[in-house]
């Protein structure tokens, strides 16, 4: 039991390491003083200034659009890819396919960014598309590296799932497409939701890949933050960070509530079915 005590200390130390910096960041966003780490009294003026910063708001709007589009595209592509890996058994080119799914998870961002930019430049020279770089190229780049995460989430969900439901539907004469939409899709819906949220967050967070594939006039929010942070810290960034974290925390809280409720509902249904039968 004494050992468990030491372990608990290690755990709390780990949590402190993870959360104290974030807490300090939020605390100092309400600081009156321009010197971020010197307390000068409570104030919300940095939030007000934030709302008047047009460059920042424009970048945030662009980032949200890119994140929503690329998350949606990567959920579609990633779900299909995860389904193929978990359910289609051995097909021709599976090894290469599996490799291309897992490699982006660990690929250094500078390599992904550089390679996609060179592809876009070469394509533009060869076929005239994409015409310049901007929102489209950032969205394509983000879709490519986030779909890998979605595919892995969907694949692991499907692998842990009993195949007998799908087989039963198949035996009763349902076509594969119908089986997918009526049986598989509702079951993996929570995984799809978390995949979308993850893809959205990763896209909203990316500065390296976006810096490579963006063009003039398409500066994303992380790019603006990055360039201003390089010149030192500013209370406005603290305020922005706090707002972003509040949004993310709310989103995750709601998502987990919905999922927990669905989980309970499913368990109740299963129990009823067992008792009824």
């Amino acid at each position: 039991m004494k050992q468990m005590g030491k372990l608990a200390w290690a755990l709390w130390f780990g949590y402190a390491f993870l959360y104290v910096p974030i807490a300090l960041l939020i605390f100092y966003s309400f600081n009156e003083s321009r010197l971020v780490t010197v307390w000068g009294g409570f104030s919300t003026k940095w939030y007000a200034e934030l709302l008047q910063n047009d460059q920042l708001l424009g970048a945030a709007w662009l980032s949200l659009k890119v994140a929503a589009m690329s998350a949606t595209a990567s959920v579609v592509l990633g779900t299909v890819a995860g389904l193929a890996l978990a359910r289609f058994g051995r097909f021709r080119g599976r090894t290469l396919f599996g490799g291309m799914i897992t490699a982006p998870l660990v690929m250094p961002e500078v390599i992904t960014g550089l390679s996609l930019l060179l592809l876009f430049v070469a394509l533009e020279q060869a076929i005239g598309w994409p015409d310049g770089r901007g929102m489209t190229t950032i969205t394509i780049a983000h879709t490519t590296f986030t779909m890998a995460y979605v595919a892995v989430i969907i694949q692991s969900r499907l692998v842990s799932l009993d195949e007998s439901l799908e087989e039963a539907a198949m035996d009763l004469g349902a076509r594969p497409a119908k089986v997918f939409f009526v049986i598989t899709l509702p079951i993996i819906a929570p995984a799809i939701v978390s995949g979308w949220l993850l893809a959205f967050t990763l896209s909203l967070d990316d500065v390296v890949v976006a810096s490579f594939v963006s063009g003039p006039g398409s500066t994303t929010l992380p790019m603006v933050i990055f360039s201003s942070v390089k010149f030192g810290i500013s209370p406005q960034i603290n305020a922005l960070a706090t707002l972003m974290m509040v949004v993310v925390a709310t989103g995750i809280f709601i998502a987990s509530l919905v999922m927990a409720r669905q989980d309970r509902q499913r368990k109740r249904d299963e129990q009823m079915a067992v008792q009824g039968g």
């Binding site: 300090l24 949220l197 933050i225 603290n238 960070a241 993310v248």
Partner: peptide, 16 residues
Amino acid sequence: LPFWTSFLIRIYAWIG
């Protein structure tokens, strides 16, 4: 949970 908050902002927190 911290993984869901921006990577850039978590680095930024350490500057201060």
